[in-house]
Design a protein around this nucleic acid. Sequence first.
RNA 1: GCGGGCGUGGUGAAAUUGGUAUACACACCGGACUUAAAAUCCGGAGGCUUCGGCCAUGCGGGUUCAAGUCCCGCCGCCCGCACCA
Length: 874
Amino acid sequence: MATERYNPRASEPKWQKAWDAKKLFEANNDDPRPKYYVLEMFPYPSGRIHIGHTRNYTMGDVVARYKRAKGFNVLHPMGWDAFGMPAENAAMQNKVHPKEWTYQNIATMREQLKVMGLSLDWAREFATCDVDYYHRQQMLFLDFVEKGLVTRKSSKVNWDPEDMTVLANEQVIDGRGWRSGALVEQRELTQWFFKITDYAQDLLDSLDGLDEWPEKVKLMQQNWIGRSEGLLIRWPLAAPIAGEHELEVYTTRPDTIFGASFMAVAADHPLARKAAETNPALAKFIEEVRHMGTSVAALETAEKKGFDTGIRVVHPFDDSWTLPVYVANFVLMEYGTGAIFGCPSGDQRDLDFANKYGLPVIPVVMPEGADVKTFQITEEAYVGDGAMINSRFLDGMKPDRAFDEVAKLLEQQTIGNRPMAERKVNFRLRDWGISRQRYWGCPIPMIHCEDCGVVPVPKADLPVRLPDDVEFDRPGNPLDRHPTWRHVKCPQCGKDARRETDTMDTFVDSSWYFARFTAPWAHEPTDPKAANEWLPVDQYIGGIEHAILHLLYSRFFTRAMRETGHVDLAEPFKGLFTQGMVVHETYRVGSASNGRWLAPTEVRLEGVDGERRAFDIATGEAVTIGPLEKMSKSKKNTVSPEDITDGYGADTARWFMLSDSPPERDVEWTDDGAAGAHRFIQRIWRLVSTAAETLAGIKPGAAGAGEAGVVSKAAHKILKAVGEDIEKLAFNRAIARIYELANALTAPLNEVAEGKADPALQGACREAVEILVHLIAPVMPHLAEECWETLGGTDLVAERPWPVFDPALVIDNEVTYPVQVNGKKRGDLTIARDADQGAVEKAVLALDFVQKALEGKAPRKVIIVPQRIVNVVA
RNA sequence: GCGGGCGUGGUGAAAUUGGUAUACACACCGGACUUAAAAUCCGGAGGCUUCGGCCAUGCGGGUUCAAGUCCCGCCGCCCGCACCA
């Protein structure tokens, strides 16, 4: 029987409408079934949906559809991370208002997403730039202020003098602003901060409980938080300087205190500043260090430099021992106390510094087996374990013991009114600076009053709305130069006052959107009942690039929201999955300097003698095929979702993106792969539709034996395997299993279609086809509906339960053991599943090839791993 | 520099976590159908072989009845952090 080809362009919109009409994907907060919250990191509305987005959302959609079929009340929402710089850049370049630009992009991208047939609850959609959303964010901010979670302090920032704005570290490239190219300056600015460091220990400890997170991400967060245990040591100054009597340093290696040969302080250290007041050469040096910049590249290449301040400190254990204090370019004011003691033998950087300035190098830790008389440190510092030497009363101790000894002794001594040393835990994690001198962000709801100081905007006066009438003709913050917006009355005294014109970092917006989705209509930031029922997100899916900031900020925010009564949990994401990128090879004509990049659609590929060659379609020129790279506009190696959906449909795109490559790995986009995926769609359709007429009146029924039994067993085994694979997000494996089922059903279904099948086989095939249709549904939902309808289904697959496998059919009565002799496979043995070890051994030893190998002798050992393998050791 | 990961056919990959290495797909080759092509269907395929087998999971060792999987040492690639005291 001839069937027409499956036409996704006609079918896909039809089924999308059918799902919509029944509101199948709208989650009800009062639904009594167990909940399941699956969320993909929401997109920034940059203009168009990228193929990488669709891979991300397809993964989430498979999980959502599967969990729905498994009987869960599924929440699968979508929104827009809509504040941020690109909108302002577009405003400057194209004279479009950021708001208009953003909402237009959202409209475009929403339509693109709808084409994909994602089972999203669009009723809960919002954008972070909606007044409704940032209104609640301002409420949260004020609650955080009240609980002391917000602080205002002066800090060093990267300042772009041309764009007149603060840059994030990531936006500083080789010491220059990423947009303006201007040399970035370090400036002190008073900024708003969230006190994330209050939670440093908790954020670190709680990582242990996140057992559904990738180890890699947990490790990255652990390193980012950067806990270290050390000692704060107060070194007396040999002579007081401007009222200062001591120098406080932080060290994790107090055991090496007798190896100290110098002190080094940051250029911004108070002692350095004081010394510079009377020392012009030092002042000049400090100025140089300040201008060096903090970019990675600058730090990497910078030579270690120092300047002797002339100040001397006294060794805590020896009054007659003084050490010089240097200002050094490698000491950071932000970490520890901004001052260190240098022990050249135990730290490579200190050793380089000492060698450069002719400072003593005293070895204090000697590796096991070395000789005290000959052990020396010249070019390479020794940082390992060993025994203390040249350290007076510490000699012979292990370093950790010496650490305790030094701490104990110095804790008992005093300097001023304080102990000379204190144990201290230090974190690398800094407070989260959220002030941005930008327009397109959530206004910080605070008011500056000359008399009252900084005053919160009363909640009744919220939201603080962004004004629409702003100019982008000049760099800088348009809110600052708006004629009226910043002028307000002080809510406390009524005097003329000034609005805060900084807006919040966009990472704030994305730190709680997952909670807002649980009740986006609530007047308060959350409806705590809904939030506590839905949260945590059961499965969160997104890119590894958010491993630290977004995920750490969200973890902090959830804690802060618990503190302020908006939720009742600490960890927002129970399961986290970081998916790989979609990559594509690049095509270039000409050499690097004057070459040009070609898009995949501009290139013709040929295989010549097994070698792939590419040509420019327009000119015929030879094209260089470059390596697989992340898709980028500059290299033109992008593929847009429409390139596939227009021709092949959404199901092909969805299927291809999940097949072959494991989801955490990058997937290479190839035309052959997409075509192959589409061929499979047509094959399924042919398979199902040709047999559909014969199967129409057949009652589905599993068979236990014969040809029908083979069909039923394959179907039930694969049904079980696919469910397990989806639970583990192993989509590529699930897809391989589905191919297997399609392969196994091809011959029987042809028999059915040709009318050659007996009733048992017909029943088994009917059931197996129904299973197949349900198995493909999470990945290819439209095709599944079309197949289901053809089979006479009157409901939608999207609302049907996941089929249940029969345990009796997934285990075989007989099991085939590979039989090894001395670890090498020589044959197999098929025997009853329930045969005991004795019976298996007897049967194995009777096998020809085993007897031959044994040459009449008794085996040394027979190892039988039940249901797995037999190994005979001769 | 520190931390982590990876390395399996021509290609993407699989291997129940120590138990038959190469499932499934792509590409390829052959056959059927066709005047022909496309589409489709069927089949083949790690390498070597004296047809008994032997060798193969980056390289070299080790543990084990048994190693892609565990341990040690190299080589190569990738990612994260980075003057952190």
